[in-house]
Design a protein around this nucleic acid. Structure first.
Lengths: 176, 176
DNA sequence: CCTCTTTGGTTTCGATCCGAAACTAACTGT
DNA sequence: ACAGTTAGTTTCGGATCGAAACCAAAGAGG
């Protein structure tokens, strides 16, 4: 609702547009299979054309870097630069994060859990994707220190397990 | 976050812009002291000029009606028309409401409570207003079936107690 | 090898939206 | 009466976004 508008009225918000902030956050959190303009366009519920412009603007500002994907000549792999991470430190939504962080841990966990459930219900109605973490995805099978992803048929390192993936599919919920 | 974008990608969303939906919802929920273009501009964290345009467009579409306020010649009182209420029935955010309504009642209550706390913290940092319900406002003193508002110095009927007010001030939280 | 289709991505164009600034009119205080 | 403030509008220019057209690489099927 208007929480988002409120959050974006902060001091550091003027430097980037709302769409640019969202893109920067997305590419900082998405895993290597999901750091493409197309994936971001789905995440942001917009068109590929608009997403392409947003990415282009951030690249020209030096906050994102575009690399070619040798496995697929059409695709591009987007990385957040050092300047991009520095900019993220001034994220106007960080205030909101801090506000939420003041809540006790178990309250936060319950909040996230139910928000996720609502999001999934909504995404299903919109026939849109959900975008979840690898360690909560049904494609992932734990192996050694990391995991094997049956979807991308690749090994994931432990530090990648918390990243967002476009192919996320929720694990079966334990009944009850 | 991107929940809002997702919610707005529904079937009926095309008929009104995001700002217009927000305005329509606001004027349907705000009490009689808060149904003005200025109050909406604060709620939406935008300028009075932009809010004026949004209201004007909705009036010309027949979803809002503008009445003069005899107590203050400058001010305008905005009302939602029957057509406006009919349009609200197709609110793309209604899907989100339904998704949340599937959660158990006490979970919803906890969610609202903590979201409100986060909003208040954030609003304080932004030196913005909070916009809460009259029955949770420190200005309200219960009287008979309604309440007396010390802020506007007016009697509120029982059915007005759930409306949003621009002058909302949270009650003192019970310590603990 | 050669088409057809699909997919990832970009560009252009027009519509819309929005914020800043200038302005009018009505209220308030002295 | 006068200055200062507040509610609201209008205009203008910039930013954004979605639709459509387009290009190139990857598959599919024969």
């Amino acid at each position: 609702m208007h929480l988002a508008r409120l959050a974006h009225s902060g001091p550091g918000a003027a430097q980037l547009s709302a769409a640019q902030w969202t893109a920067l956050r997305y590419f900082a959190r998405a895993n290597r299979f999901s750091r493409t303009p197309s994936a971001f366009s789905e995440f942001h519920a917009t068109t590929r054309g608009t997403a392409s412009q947003t990415v282009k603007s951030l690249v020209s500002m030096g906050f994102l870097e575009r690399r070619s994907n040798e496995a697929d000549g059409r695709s591009a792999l987007i990385e957040v630069t050092d300047a991009g991470h520095a900019m993220l430190a001034q994220d106007p939504l960080a205030d909101l994060r801090r506000a939420l962080a003041e809540q006790p841990a178990e309250v936060r966990a319950a909040l996230m859990k139910h928000l996720r459930a609502a999001t999934e219900t909504l995404a299903e109605q919109r026939s849109a994707r959900t975008f979840g973490r690898c360690d909560e995805c049904s494609h992932c099978a734990p192996r050694d220190t990391g995991a094997y992803c049956h979807c991308t048929q690749a090994m994931l390192r432990a530090e990648e397990m918390g990243a967002l993936c476009i192919d996320f599919t929720p694990k079966l919920r334990s009944t009850g």
